[in-house]
Design a protein around this nucleic acid. Structure first.
Lengths: 362, 362
DNA sequence: CTGAAAGCGCTTACAG
DNA sequence: CTGAAAGCGCTTACAG
């Protein structure tokens, strides 16, 4: 109701000028009273602070930041709409890692969703001192903007080939390694559930996005047993990184002409979705069908059976990326930083030997 | 190495003045070219945009925000250090709800950790248009600062008694309701695992914090069977909202003189921690001991047995709080908004009847 | 359609 | 120890 009025009220905040006038000192003195007490007399300071307290003056953070040319905040660019991004525990761990560093340095962490569907706009307008991006085959346009703005940035799970600091695991090797486990159990009929190309991905031919690297790792392992991603017994599907879509994918898999004996996913949350759906529909895991994940999120030990997966230290990724970013914010040159952090394949119970097929015995 | 130099480079960003000079138009025209094309001629605009593109000019978001007196970001005040906060799936759901609304309105979401241990400092300095707080019996000091700054704010899981917009469930009723379920199964020996008093909580006697309200609900149900929180068979403990601390709490419980038949927790993540620990140490759930949670996070259906708990729609809480906040940011008066959203008690398998005690038969 | 100028609320060399 | 003044990079009435 009192729309206009309450807007007006907002503008009544006292400014440094009011305090200067009321206290009888200069703006300079008032500023020093708050920021550098040593520069003025004890009494002066007390008097200034007194009138400030009395009329409820708090220096405007926006004006300070503008004057100081910094925000005390770093940005995290969300690759998808928030609804998807923040449902993925892996992402949350990354955010936690970044957040810990922010807290350490007294910074805030700004989550930046695509602005009216435009990541470009979001990057142009972000009021931050630096940016962390994730899972992107960075569009050149976005990189350009960050450079134009002289905004330091580091990318997680991005393509390390670009001219920018990055932190990754060796996705190709990790994928190879877990696929070998799957093949060692005798599986030859499988579906690979890939990640959707995220918003940053272009269809470039020099593609080194995470899904591509992992597929390359799978392919290498498959090759060792005479298979490839094109083999008829190797199906490829794509699932959003949510429990729901994982379930949906499992549903699709059960509808397949020839049912696979293994599902190889690129994310635990999808793998767990598959387990939940299949368990609910009477399949035994890994008795009827084996499932492996990727990430080793906390939840992977909660499901039954517990997930065989690849451990990647998500919080560490965020932590290290943030540390590099802060070094850049402080003027250090880290353009060439390419962090590869170790992965581990974790053997638990969701992967088992190929079930004997009764229909295959004559 | 080139520390000083790269700092200098940073300052070379072109400003609106450069574009004005280079294009031969005024600052006004340049500003309009970017913000209100109708105010200048087509050709003018094109020329200005051309030189802007050529030398890579992007209007400084900080300066714009300062001039426009807004940030296009809302803040979420983290009640604890990030390490704890962001590990709790419940909290993540709340953030997701808030984030969805931010995305909808083209805002960013600023996560604000306690600044060098001081929430007060963090609130003074936060560069945001509004604030959402969670789980706080709000310190008067913090409220004062938000008011002084004329910063609209709404609180989730806070005490609705304060003069501020809030969104809650009826914690007293919810706790009463789940405790009745526990008692109905015959449990009389139990431990109640409460939430830690969060950073915002004062020890005030008019305490209406969430843990207190819930305890009141428990007490009411206990009273109906002649028990109270002070009864010798009713133990109270406190656990941090993390899986680890949940496990630790379960450990402590196994060391108790007389082992309870039920554990009543105030958060699923703690309940799951208990289940994991007890399961690992050979206890059957609910055969030997029953456990109930609170929140109904996604993970509560992943554990075995699945959790009996109270469903509170965490994402909705965030969503609705953010919607109210945006109305306030747009000048609406929502001071009296007190949202109570519905809860449901969810019966699954982690709660069972009291086990027969062999040692009690003569 | 266009521009000169004031203003947003701070900080900080610089001079006294 | 203190203050007048310039400056941060924009926006926007206002006048032409």
């Amino acid at each position: 109701m009192a729309t206009a009025r309450s807007k007006d009220a907002k503008d009544k905040r006292p400014t440094i000028n009011d305090i200067a006038r009321l206290s009888g000192y200069s703006k300079t003195a008032v500023s020093f009273a708050f920021n550098d007490p040593t520069r003025i007399g004890q009494k002066t300071r007390e008097q200034i602070l007194a009138v400030a307290a009395q009329i409820g003056y708090i220096p405007d953070p926006m004006a300070r930041n503008f004057s100081l040319r910094r925000h005390r905040s770093i940005g995290f660019l969300l690759p998808q709409i928030i609804h998807y991004t923040l449902r993925n525990p892996y992402m949350m761990q990354v955010i936690q890692g970044i957040g810990s560093v922010c807290q350490k340095y007294g910074y805030t962490l700004t989550l930046i969703p695509p602005l009216n569907e435009s990541i470009t706009e979001a990057v142009r307008n972000a009021a931050v001192d630096g940016l962390i991006t994730i899972g992107m085959k960075v569009e050149m346009e976005i990189v350009d903007i960050m450079r134009q703005r002289k905004l330091p940035f580091v990318t997680i799970d991005g393509t390390p080939s670009q001219m920018m600091p990055s932190v990754n695991i060796d996705d190709e090797a990790a994928a190879y390694s877990i696929m070998r486990q799957v093949l060692a159990e005798g599986h030859r009929d499988m579906v690979i559930v890939s990640l959707p190309d995220d918003a940053f991905t272009t269809g470039a031919s020099d593609d080194t996005s995470v899904p591509t690297l992992r597929k390359r790792g799978y392919e290498r392992a498959l090759g060792e047993v005479g298979l490839s991603l094109e083999s008829p017994s190797v199906e490829t599907m794509v699932s959003e990184c949510t429990l729901e879509d994982g379930k949906h994918t499992a549903h699709l898999i059960t509808k397949l002409k020839t049912r696979p004996t293994a599902i190889v996913t690129m994310s635990d949350i999808v793998a767990i979705g598959c387990i939940l759906y299949l368990d609910e529909h009477g399949y035994s895991i890994p008795g009827d069908i084996s499932i492996v994940g990727f990430d080793n999120i906390q939840e992977s030990v909660l499901v039954t059976p517990r997930l065989t997966t690849v451990d990647q230290p998500a919080a560490d990724k965020g932590y290290m990326a943030a540390e590099v970013l802060f070094r850049m914010i402080n003027g250090e040159d880290c353009e060439d930083t390419r962090l590869i952090i170790p992965y581990r394949t974790i053997i638990r119970n969701s992967l088992g030997p190929v079930p004997e097929r009764l229909d295959e015995t004559p």
